[in-house]
Design a protein around this nucleic acid. Structure first.
Lengths: 228, 228
DNA sequence: TGTAAAACATGACATTTGTCAGTTTATTCC
DNA sequence: GGAATAAACTGACAAATGTCATGTTTTACA
């Protein structure tokens, strides 16, 4: 069981603004969990007793809409802290968090977070910066969702996957999502997503090997994103 | 020129967590501005040297999408603090803020805010709560935008206007938006919005007198929002 | 108060997207 | 290794939405 003080992941999230003493406390109360693909970290409406720090793997944060479809609002990877927002506002979780692949996460009880927030302005401001950044991203997603076509959003999604999760050894996107997940990210029907992805393949914008996808013509995708 | 210490508006935003001394400082550096309908408070890409506290009137926060259409992300009224996010992340404004009707706003220079954030955990946490709440709302908007039909979103918009801005003396919505603004709120073409609003009138869900709109059949609207 | 400009409205049509139904291809698990 | 299940795919069609063109009403203001 690692000590938070030595955790490299911490450099990428708000915990880096904690003092030695605070980190020690977190370290003493935290627990580590291993999750398998498809496992639920927490569900919409759950009362959260702490936050989850992603050490490895990727989680999808999604919300079920009344029509029965899941909208993926965000993908969280190494370094992300999940559940922060709900702990801060003392509300139940607004989104559910599900593992997209095998994950390792640390659970940090609420108190350690809340106490530091109230006593350490550096930490509070650091958390504030992160949430403020998330808010900007969310606003941008709103604009994309309402003003861009499904085709544009899918093209963007592939670019997003490349830029945020990188490539594997063979040049394929490191993060593989099912067609259904892609549809849920861009907010469309699974069949529509499949159709457009097939079209992209025919046009040579992407290529696929089994489940893996690679961007074959970035310029082509950029054009799709820009022009209608 | 009023003193912040006595400002009632303050009770509705994060400034209420400031100490007497801090408020005094804010009061000494703030300036008050009066804006007319259509005036710009700040534009997308502007560097903000402070935040704006809305004392009266309503502002629309919007972003221009590449296709030339404006997406209204949020409507801000009495008590709202605008530009907070940009000041915190030290980025240029992500949205533009335009007066929907005549407004009175206080401009508070950046330093007074930043210094308090760094020294007063209560204030930092209070701001954090507000931004966290905005983030939740933004996530909900994302789900609405991608999973609901234009008709559902317009019905919701009227309900939203009633619940957040209330009614005037005659039972009409206190806040009157142009059809174009409504279209930009729900993310659709102006013509589509007009058509659906006309339909709602025919169906007796709303009635209109001049520019003013009133909800005539709340249950009917609720049904539209729910069922497809 | 008359006139130009803006906002509102409607029709006709093209395009996008969703839905349903069915087939093929991968994956899982005994 | 083969049956069962899930994922990926395709076609045909319906529904939703956008676009363009044009007419009407309202508003602003000289």
């Amino acid at each position: 069981m690692g000590r938070c003080e030595n955790c490299i992941i911490r450099q990428f999230n708000s915990l880096r603004a904690m003092s030695k003493e605070e980190l020690k406390r977190v370290s003493d109360t935290k627990t580590t969990k291993f999750l398998k693909k498809g496992d639920t970290i927490f569900g919409e409406g759950d009362k959260l007793n702490g936050v989850f720090c992603v050490r490895d793997g990727v989680s999808k944060l999604s919300k079920l809409s009344p029509n029965g479809k899941d909208q993926i609002v965000k993908l969280a990877t190494k370094g992300a802290v999940l559940g922060q927002r709900s702990v801060i506002t003392e509300e139940v979780a607004n989104l559910s968090a599900i593992a997209v692949n095998d994950m390792e996460v640390c659970f940090i009880p609420k108190d350690a977070i809340v106490d530091s927030l109230n006593s350490n302005p550096n930490f509070a401001v650091e958390v504030l910066r992160h949430i403020a950044h998330d808010l900007k991203e969310a606003d941008d997603v709103i604009v994309n969702m309402s003003q861009k076509t499904v085709k544009q959003r899918i093209a963007e999604a592939f670019i997003y996957l490349e830029e945020n999760f990188g490539l594997d050894g063979n040049g394929y996107l490191a993060l593989t999502l099912s067609r259904e997940d892609i549809a849920n990210v861009v907010g469309t029907a699974t069949e529509s997503a499949i159709r457009i992805i097939s079209e992209f393949k025919k046009l040579g914008f992407i290529k696929a090997s089994g489940k893996k996808v690679a961007i074959a013509d970035r310029k082509g995708l950029d054009e799709v994103v820009k022009g209608a």
